[in-house]
Design a protein around this nucleic acid. Structure first.
Ligand SMILES: [Zn+2]
Ligand SMILES: [Zn+2]
Ligand SMILES: [Zn+2]
Ligand SMILES: [Zn+2]
Lengths: 167, 167
DNA sequence: TATTGTATGTTATAATATACCTGTTAATAA
DNA sequence: TTATTAACAGGTATATTATAACATACAATA
């Protein structure tokens, strides 16, 4: 029940992103139902806004978009509360180095997010790299350190943007 | 010309931290002289404030401390300018997940910082884990992604704080 | 229906960071 | 030495991100 991974975030031009959005919302629905969590219209709308692209989106951008559709009524806490819910349900991740939020690619299995963020186009890919995480945990173990949360964010240039530069 | 690493950040009680401070300032001096960069009194003072402990320090905490010693004159841009300089010289790192800054343990060799941050005591250890970084770079290579900057921050509980909990 | 917990609305404010303009100091050239 | 220039620092205002505190609406269930 994971999002299809054959659609690379770095080829937004060449994949049908509407499928990403539909899948993400479907999975969110299923997971919340299973857990007895309430994916209210507001929370669903925020999740949908975040999934508009594979770029991370700041809280105040979300607020702006909400106001455009809702009729100017939303305030910051509205957005942050919805974000908190989505974070707790594992439906989105926070990108600490950008103060922004992005849809999770595999919200059904608890995991640590590892992100590759293109500095040029902003598209962001979430990686599954279990052995990498295992390495980190081993390092931690040697130190006697108990890891509870990890932030791994690599900034750089995606293949698509590299090909544009070399033209 | 790296800071002595036998003093663990997680045993602040049992190491002579004044040696950490002295070494850090000495190395900073040497590096800046070598590079023709100017470690002005203000920049030096900010670096010294950051090195007061192995906990990361927010810009506004630094500001506060500056004002206590300087006579209340400093403003935010003063601090941020000094921080920018220290970051560029590789003398400090920014901890994205805490919006805070910490002294670099080996400022002489360019490297990616990997941090273990104790959620209980705040002490933070910077790790050298080259093979871990190599792993990340290989992942990136497979994606065709060119990494330019990495943020690796692991939150958890340090050995010292674990021992306290179990009492 | 009454009760209770969850969700949302509203206002104000905290915390972090930068833009912009002005004066000062330090290196370099004439 | 003095003139010129670039780096540095001060100061004010403001942008950006996030939360506190309190009030109201809604939904589940007893
Ligand atoms: Zn997509
Ligand atoms: Zn790109
Ligand atoms: Zn020390
Ligand atoms: Zn600790």
């Amino acid at each position: 029940m994971s999002l299809s991974s054959y659609r690379s975030p770095f080829s937004e031009q060449t994949h049908d992103h509407s499928l990403c959005i539909i899948e993400a919302l479907e999975i969110a629905n299923k997971l919340c139902t299973q857990r007895g969590a309430r994916l209210t219209p507001l929370r669903r709308q925020v999740l949908e806004l975040i999934w508009q692209s594979h770029k991370s989106l700041g809280a105040y951008k979300i607020l702006e978009k909400l106001q455009n559709t809702q009729g100017g009524r939303a305030a910051p806490p509205t957005v942050y509360r919805a974000l908190d819910f989505l974070l707790k349900q594992g439906l989105i991740h926070r990108i600490a180095s950008l103060n922004a939020f992005i849809g999770c690619l595999h919200p059904d299995s608890p995991h640590v997010g590892q992100f590759f963020i293109c500095q040029t186009c902003g598209n962001t890919a979430e990686l599954e790299a279990p052995h990498l995480h295992a390495d980190l945990l081993q390092q931690a173990h040697q130190l006697g350190f108990k890891v509870e949360k990890s932030t791994i964010e690599l900034m750089g240039v995606c293949p698509h943007c590299q090909s544009l530069v070399s033209l």
